[in-house]
Design a binder for these strands. Structure first.
Lengths: 117, 117
DNA sequence: CTTGACAATAAGTTACAGCTTATATAACTA
DNA sequence: TAGTTATATAAGCTGTAACTTATTGTCAAG
């Protein structure tokens, strides 16, 4: 079966700035827990816990190298979010050259007295 | 000033399936609170509260029409998330035809005895 | 001007997220 | 084998998210 969307967990993971920073760091390549923890004031366990959240969300993957556990970005989880957002982006493009953008900037047509809804 | 990113609030908003469903509905066009509430078992206040979260996150905008408050998608907030994700997507593309994808599938080079880190 | 529909706000409850410190586990190093 | 390094897990605390019901505000219709 195909690794379930887990969109709840994935978006929730991105809601935390520490986790976004971790992902941004991993975008430049693999890193260990210690390396990831360095920029923050937080304790090491806190970072491990953030990493667990990212893994459970399918955004980060693990590799074993001795006592170290280097993490890297996990493609499928990231793509899943990307595809969901694509839906909204497409809707925005559609409405751009159509009616909603007009309604947004203009005095609304405003239902008149006798008019039914 | 340019409406601050609010990425925390934006991604947190997407972490809830009810709110994602609301956005999906709004992708098809404007809708009132009652219309948005209909598909759910939740109370009307609950939906109003979800809408407040979406507005505070800059993902949804409001229009006043009599006693009704039709909502529509808000472009800037959605684009902000999209752009942040684009960074990760780009990183994945880069590593695709390079080394990380190889590390993922292969026995790691493994630091040797005398080697320094 | 009263009624009914649409929607927001308030207050209270429950559950869980995100830290902390303390401790455990496992692999290198000497 | 004993010490050190890298990381995970456990337990406890505090704040906040997501509902509920009750109530209020506001417009429109008659």
């Amino acid at each position: 079966m195909h690794a379930a969307p887990k969109l709840n967990a994935a978006f929730a993971a991105l809601a935390d700035p520490t986790r976004r920073a971790i992902l941004a760091r991993l975008a430049t390549g693999e890193a260990t827990v210690m390396e990831l923890a360095k920029p923050f004031q937080m304790s090491q366990p806190a970072i491990s816990q953030h990493l667990k959240v990212l893994e459970d969300a399918g955004l980060v993957a693990l590799r074993v190298d001795g006592t170290r556990r280097p993490r890297r970005l996990a493609k499928p989880g990231i793509e899943a979010m990307d595809q969901w957002l694509a839906m909204l982006r497409k809707a925005l493009e559609k409405s751009y050259d159509r009616l909603d953008e007009i309604l947004a900037g203009m005095e609304p047509p405003k239902t008149k007295k006798g008019e039914k809804r």
